[in-house]
Design a protein around this nucleic acid. Structure first.
Lengths: 338, 338
DNA sequence: CTGAAAGCGCTTACAG
DNA sequence: CTGAAAGCGCTTACAG
């Protein structure tokens, strides 16, 4: 009689509970819920019936412990209010789920040092991989992850860390195209709007842009602000347009800043885009397509990145560091003369 | 000698490994990493040294299994490209982390049925709570969660599920205010832009808005589209403005639609806002504050919601269903005459 | 303060 | 096909 009772209140049923109710062994229960294990149809049916009755669900934590394999994947994010990050997270979690992976999300916030603590946590949870979308984990922490068989995947971070898998963008090609776009548009006074504290990825955009511009004998004005957001974009445009040498072409290091630039140029300074001023962004966030912006920009290959992340998980963990380079293609809209 | 070797390649060190190297028992290692456990300073030091050498990290999965308590919290999300969702997730994960909780994120995508499968998963991972930001889990699944001691927290879903903790908005008060705003602005022909498939939360906004408007003897035009996004907002505004009875006031069920409405009204139809047309949104997404929109709207109390979620986790799991109602306050900007 | 032992919920050779 | 047993990495009474 006691055996027929559901388990103690508030505690989930265990395989033992199910076994007892079904009149079989623990092993039989386990096999019923293991793909490809050998159980007779009869046993299976009994187990399934009992499991249903007790609302039994395999405890994946215990399974992971037993099988010595952990499925969770940790994702380091921040600035989810930046649509680029939100979009990336959206795609990656979706793909991860299709691949039957569970995502643990760690918000590293604004604190750059937080990435280190976050990585520490991923170790505690025996994540099989950490996907870094934000923050810059220190090299020694990365080493430690790799040593215990966890793979670290850096997306668009372009750091030069060893033992890490990089998924990044071919900024050289993109920036060559960007410069061509400005040149063809006939812009002569070009400004680059960026950020004081540059991530490796932003730095790469900057450097290649400047390099190719100089090859055209154009020296860009450099404007650098605090955060890569809308407000900074507005401030940049204000300062540039009241400056001695107002630009007729502005490359914003990301779309969020470009949106701020556009609003300020159009509404505060009554500039016509693209006639008086060409603006180019980077990321292709949803707002870039809004008719209030209609921003010409480069599209982050979100879907390809997400697919690459999942593929990377399937690679052997002791694989030497790899580097996958994807293309960001120009998206022609209305802020650039063509 | 063998005892001094690090554990087998590619496997994280276990407490046994550390114990062996430090020359103490497993228990001592465990105590060293348990707050408030009694270990002598000497033992502690030996353990710590060995742990450092082996890069030992407590396996939280095993700890959770042993302590019969699971820490992870599952968050059901979708549509992360909607800034409202992104913002909510951002705040909640941040607060959860401060409270030392780990967040598992489940992207339920567009499929409403996905919420059921997602909840099933949260059971497998023995989450202590599921926070539903998207999707509508079926009542029987919720019951099952509650039975095994998992609490289910619905944020802004306003469903009438039993055994669930609700955190929602006082839409009645907000909509009363909304109607007052339109009335004071002198609007007489008012449209409501919403969605065909309404979530309970959208429905509540609609119903109260219509109710209070009728109390003012104003019968709103109802426009309903497919998705609550920018493009739908544009379409709504086009159809309304070419209609027989173009409105001089539009309440958009969310900011994303309002942004679409604004761009179309201003640029395609050359309406001056707020002189010719007043527009009101809901959510206060970052874009609402952008000067290109300057949208008068209601602010979701993101911070309060996040705090409430964390507080709710601390409540006893067998607590009867609770309902916390927060206020969304109007944010006055430029799309509404005052 | 410390260690041996039992137990958390699972899986998986190993015999039968 | 099936069950008893050992083991995954931890915690925690229980003695000492």
């Amino acid at each position: 009689m006691k055996g027929r009772l559901p388990p103690a209140n508030g505690m989930p049923a265990s395989a033992s509970d199910v076994a007892r109710l079904a009149g079989v062994s623990r092993s039989a229960v386990s096999r019923t819920f293991t793909d490809g294990a050998s159980v007779s149809a009869d046993t299976r049916a009994k187990v399934l019936r009992a499991a249903e009755e007790l609302h039994y669900h395999v405890n994946f934590l215990a399974r992971g412990l037993s099988k010595q394999e952990s499925r969770p994947v940790c994702i380091l994010v921040s600035n989810l209010h930046n649509p680029y990050h939100a979009q990336l997270l959206n795609q990656i979690t979706t793909e991860l789920q299709k691949a039957q992976r569970i995502s643990i999300i760690i918000n590293v916030g604004d604190d750059p040092a937080a990435a280190s603590g976050a990585l520490e946590q991923t170790l505690n949870y025996r994540a099989s991989a950490t996907i870094v979308l934000s923050g810059s984990p220190p090299a020694h922490m990365v080493r430690r992850c790799v040593e215990v068989g966890q793979s670290v995947i850096l997306v668009n971070r372009a750091d030069d860390l060893p033992d890490v898998r990089h998924i990044s963008i071919d900024y050289e090609t993109a920036m060559r195209t960007a410069v061509q776009m400005f040149v063809r548009a006939g812009c002569r006074t070009i400004a680059l709007v960026s950020r004081a504290v540059r991530t490796p990825s932003l730095l790469a955009r900057e450097e290649f842009f400047i390099k190719f511009l100089r090859e055209q004998n154009i020296e860009p004005q450099l404007w650098r602000g605090g955060a890569t957001n809308y407000e900074t974009g507005q401030r940049a445009m204000r300062e540039l347009l009241v400056g001695l040498n107002p630009p007729d072409g502005v490359f914003c290091i990301n779309d969020l800043m470009a949106c701020g630039c556009i609003d300020t140029a159009r509404h505060e300074f009554k500039r016509r885009l693209p006639e008086d001023l060409c603006i180019l962004g980077f990321d292709d966030i949803p707002q870039a397509a809004w008719s209030g912006y209609d921003l010409t920009t480069f599209a982050q290959p979100f879907a390809e990145i997400a697919a690459a992340v999942v593929q990377s998980l399937a690679l052997p963990p002791d694989l030497e560091s790899s580097r996958l380079v994807l293309n960001a293609r120009p998206v022609w809209r209305g802020t650039m003369r063509s």
